[in-house]
């Protein structure tokens, strides 16, 4: 079953809000009204809608102006063969989103479940709280193949965010709980105001000044994590046992930690 396929009829002249366009939508998807710039149009005006099936929705040839892709998703799968705009998977609670290209700002913001895989980069505030909200992502898994913009995982409340590339300024700031892994470099100010939670890093460079060295340790936790999370196993390596622990942000209670691990997972 291929599921429903959306293929853009041409270049977009304005931002398209695909919030609510999800797998399982009824056969009237082409007639669905969607915001397009300053007006509202039927989805069929912008996309050729083909295929059938409730399990999967495919967007062929994405575009950085496609906002709200997968926002509110609770089940099923969305595949985007290209880029997406802002709010990818915003408030998503289940299901799977796979984006071959890059995503805009607020991807996975306030997500509570499911999985998002982005092959390229992400804009600012990946997995963070939306404007005016107190809490960011609270559950689920995000895998970013590229680099993230500023303030990724800001106010993260739970779940796992793996950034294979670099993280922009203020990553994991005000983080409440959850796990963030950054494979590349930190731009600075990472973990500022972090209350609890775990940052997995390759280097402590870029951590905010509120972190203090707690030494290198053999942590049973690591062995458990790589056996319960395929994503963390891929990041940490299956044989990891040790990490260098930095506690912080001590200016915000200091119950969080940054665990620095070598790329191979061994230190």
């Amino acid at each position: 079953m291929t599921g429903v396929i959306l293929t853009a009829r041409g270049d977009f002249e304005a931002r398209v809000d695909l919030t609510g366009v999800l797998p399982g939508a009824d056969g009237g998807l082409a007639k669905r009204a969607i915001p397009y710039g300053g007006r509202v149009v039927e989805l069929g005006e912008l996309f050729d809608v083909s295929g059938s099936g409730a399990e999967r929705l495919t967007i062929e040839g994405g575009d950085a102006r496609l906002d709200g892709v997968g926002a509110g998703l609770s089940e099923g799968e969305i595949v985007v063969r290209g880029d997406v705009g802002a709010r990818l998977g915003h408030k998503m609670s289940g299901g799977m989103i796979s984006v071959k290209g890059s995503a805009g700002a607020y991807a996975a913001s306030e997500m509570s479940g499911g999985k998002i895989a982005i092959g390229g980069d992400a804009g600012e505030r990946l997995g963070a709280a939306a404007d005016g909200s107190r809490r960011g992502m609270s559950g689920g898994v995000v895998i970013l193949g590229g680099s993230a913009g500023a303030r990724s995982a800001e106010r993260l409340r739970g779940g796992v965010v793996v950034i294979e590339g670099d993280a922009g300024e203020g990553a994991a700031s005000d983080l409440i709980a959850g796990t963030v892994a950054v494979g590349g470099r930190l731009a600075g100010g990472a973990g500022r105001g972090m209350k609890r939670g775990t940052l997995f890093l390759r280097s402590p460079e870029g951590l905010s000044g509120g972190f203090r060295d707690a030494g290198e340790h053999d942590l049973v936790l690591l062995r458990v994590l790589v056996r319960r999370s395929a994503e963390l196993a891929a990041f940490l390596g299956p044989d990891i046992t040790r990490a260098h622990r930095f506690a912080g942000d001590l200016y915000a209670g200091g119950k969080g930690e940054a665990l620095v691990v070598a790329p191979s997972g061994r230190m």
């Binding site: 739970g158 709980a177 796990t179 340790h217």
Partner: peptide, 19 residues
């Protein structure tokens, strides 16, 4: 420290030997 992974919560309790 509590950690939720894969829908399960585990606890890390600091002890003299480690955790």
């Amino acid at each position: 420290i509590a950690k939720n992974v894969d829908g399960r919560r585990i606890w890390r309790i600091p002890v003299m030997e480690g955790e």
